[in-house]
Simulated assay, not measured.
Amino acid sequence: MELDATFWAFICFLIVVGIAIYLKVPGMIAKSLDARIAKIETDLAEARKLREDAQALLDEYEAKRKAAEGEAEAIVAAAHEEAERLAVEAQAALEDMIARRTKAVEDKIAQAEAHALAEVRARSTDVAVEAARLLLASKVKEDGSALVDQSIKDVAARLN
Score class of each variant (00 low, 15 high):
3 L>G: 05
4 D>L: 06
7 F>E: 05
10 F>H: 12
11 I>H: 06
14 L>W: 15
18 G>V: 12
19 I>P: 03
20 A>M: 12
20 A>W: 14
22 Y>S: 01
23 L>F: 15
23 L>A: 00
25 V>G: 01
26 P>Q: 00
27 G>D: 13
27 G>K: 14
29 I>D: 00
29 I>L: 02
31 K>Y: 13
32 S>E: 13
34 D>M: 15
39 K>P: 07
41 E>H: 01
44 L>V: 09
44 L>H: 03
45 A>D: 09
47 A>W: 04
48 R>P: 02
51 R>V: 06
51 R>L: 05
57 L>D: 05
57 L>A: 05
60 E>W: 01
61 Y>T: 08
62 E>T: 13
62 E>M: 03
63 A>Y: 07
63 A>C: 01
69 E>A: 15
70 G>Y: 13
73 E>N: 10
74 A>N: 13
74 A>E: 08
76 V>I: 14
76 V>H: 13
78 A>Q: 09
79 A>Q: 14
81 E>S: 07
83 A>Y: 10
83 A>M: 08
85 R>M: 07
87 A>N: 11
92 A>C: 00
94 L>P: 01
96 D>C: 03
97 M>Y: 06
98 I>D: 02
98 I>H: 04
98 I>G: 01
99 A>H: 01
100 R>K: 03
104 A>K: 01
104 A>V: 02
105 V>W: 04
106 E>D: 04
107 D>G: 04
107 D>E: 06
108 K>P: 01
108 K>D: 02
109 I>D: 02
110 A>R: 09
110 A>K: 00
112 A>I: 10
113 E>R: 08
113 E>K: 09
114 A>Y: 09
115 H>K: 12
115 H>V: 11
120 V>N: 02
122 A>R: 11
122 A>M: 10
123 R>N: 07
124 S>R: 06
126 D>C: 02
127 V>N: 04
128 A>M: 10
128 A>F: 08
128 A>D: 09
129 V>H: 04
130 E>K: 06
130 E>Q: 06
130 E>T: 06
130 E>A: 04
132 A>V: 09
137 A>H: 12
138 S>R: 04
138 S>C: 03
139 K>S: 02
140 V>K: 13
146 A>Y: 13
149 D>C: 09
149 D>N: 06
151 S>G: 12
151 S>V: 15
153 K>T: 07
153 K>H: 14
154 D>S: 14
156 A>Q: 13
158 R>T: 15
158 R>H: 15
159 L>F: 13
160 N>F: 15
